[in-house]
Design a protein around this nucleic acid. Structure first.
Lengths: 156, 156
DNA sequence: TTTGTTGCAAAACGTTTGCAGCCTC
DNA sequence: GAGGCTGCAAACGTTTTGCAACAAA
């Protein structure tokens, strides 16, 4: 039995999703999916659009449209860390993780925690069927914490 | 000893915060705080602005400015449930809670869970000082789940 | 052949900003 | 009195939309 790469599996899942929802399998949609699954880390709609320009010609509209489909099919997670711009990341094949967001500089770090994950996944809801979840812990990164301390001292 | 209302306590905390950050105590800022703490549930910057018009004349700019200060002082939490518009809720005096967000209709429900809360609050980070956190569980509310089931059946 | 999808540009939307005047401190 | 804050309107950046052309089914 041949081993399938994460990208291949993601493609299969996307195809299945498109079929189920009677959407067309356009090359643009697969190009977006490929680009995302070949890259690492977070990205924005605009950064994705820019990066893809050399490689495959897609319009911004299609990028947004495809991201919406990928989010619906849970191949991508859409984040809003308090800023105006939405940030995305691939959701399949990666370990589940949570996010630390610095309230001063906006930097985002990831972390994992088994007991948190277990507690959340154990939860059952009477009239709600969970699909996925996001946990953002807001606070100060060490750099910004120091900055604040310094400016507090100056104000005395 | 006189009992202080939640609103009074919130005002005191806000005053303290303003003093600490060398901001002015303007009537507009307190009007916004009062309105928020006299209302229930979620709101947007625009809905807050609209609601306040009869009661106290504040500009949109001041509403945004004050919401920012209230978020910084943690008297208000700012949420981004995947939509473009930010949603806010008061953060002081209310029980800590998490959110269920329907991915089809966007409706938001609250829930609490002690073991989740405990797990999150127990977590320590090496180079990060947490202030607050948000947990959003995305999924389908019972109504939208039924709707999907029906349309799936029709498509067969 | 049908009609969902595309690219493009314009529009919409929520939010931020610049500025003159006001009012805390 | 100084300068932070206000209201207003214009500007901004992100996302959505309308439309004609295209291509998947």
């Amino acid at each position: 039995m041949k081993e399938e790469s994460t990208l291949d599996k993601a493609k299969d899942l996307f195809t299945e999703f498109l079929k189920k929802n009677r959407c067309r399998k356009t090359p643009e949609r697969y190009a977006v999916l490929e680009h995302i699954y070949r890259s690492e880390g977070h990205f924005t709609a605009e950064s994705l659009y820019q990066e893809m320009q050399g490689e495959y010609r897609v319009s911004r509209a299609t990028v947004y449209n495809t991201l919406e489909l990928l989010a619906q099919s849970q191949l991508v997670v859409k984040h809003r860390f308090g800023t105006q711009e939405a940030r995305y990341e691939k959701a399949f094949g990666d370990k589940l993780h949570h996010h630390l967001v610095c309230i001063d500089c906006g930097k985002v770090k990831e972390f994992t925690d088994k007991s948190i994950r277990t507690a959340i996944q154990a939860k059952r809801f009477a009239y709600f069927e969970p699909c996925y979840y996001t946990l953002y812990v807001y606070g100060l990164c060490s750099r910004c914490k120091q900055k604040r301390r310094r400016s507090d001292e100056n104000q005395k």
